[in-house]
Amino acid sequence: MEHLINIVLLGLLMLAGFAIVRTKSLLAVAMLTSIYSLLSASLFVVLDAVDVALTEAAIGAGISTILMLAAIALTSDEEKAPRHTPLLPLFVVIATGAALIYGTLDMPRFGDPAAPAHRHVAPTYLQDTPTAIGIPNVVTSVLASYRSYDTLGEVTVIFTAGTGVLALLGFRPRRRNTEDTGRKKLVILRVVAKLFFPLILLFALYVLFHGDYGPGGGFQAGVIFATGFILYALAFGLSNSQQLIPHQLLYVMAAAGVLIYGLVGIASMLLGGKFLEYQVLANDPVTGQHVGILLIETGVAITVAAVVLIIYYGFVSRRPAPGDI
């Protein structure tokens, strides 16, 4: 049964991929990309990667699609045909693909429990997590403790993106009442948005604190939190949503998350441990792990929420360039 779902999803992914190549309307491409991402998220669920699925759905199908739509609104929708016949690219792609297929021939078979990848480091994580970290979700324990430093790098990456979008697109808070009045007619959207807004924020907190036990964690929580504000902006206009969080606060939040993460590391050094050695944060090593993971996950959530909002506001508060070519 799993194999069947697997094949169907992979087949659909191929269809979506080819459709993206062929489609000329960029709006349609953006929707197809979103579908592509949702399909991969479903595939991740089948392949037991629930945390990854949640993230892919939120980031790939959600935020990335919104950004693409915003960018298309600011540029243009139609794709022109290429001037050259794509023979060279075709050759490069076929050669690369052939090399990869050649490389698969000595790979362990799909799902093989005896594959080297499952025999060396991974079993340690699975065996030690309940005792050394004291939480059931091994993905969270590896992400937030064993390979916590990668996650610090990841927060830094997203912080870099936020800084970059600020530098490129700026950030212009809109004054009140400059919005189009057409939105007032969207009664259903506004009622639903008002209803859902607090629920989404609540859900974000749930995902943040539940990350130790089930799928979720700081990153997903941050994205969901930001999504709440994006929904609010869609229903009530940009200026109203920006009044909920002033933009100076977003800067502070974006920086604060990275700082919290880094300072947890510095604190563990000052307490005589290594960088990001949570054990020294409390008397009992397992409690120390809990404290450390909670702090850094909160840091991640704050930075991610702020940066996603900064990027979103950066795109939508930019006015379309005059004239269409």
């Binding site: 990667a49 945390d51 990848a117 699975l126 993905v139 990668d150 990153f219």
Partner: peptide, 9 residues
């Protein structure tokens, strides 16, 4: 779990 973590990043 390890590839999952890598891909989250």
């Amino acid at each position: 779990p390890l590839p999952h973590v890598l891909i989250l990043t």
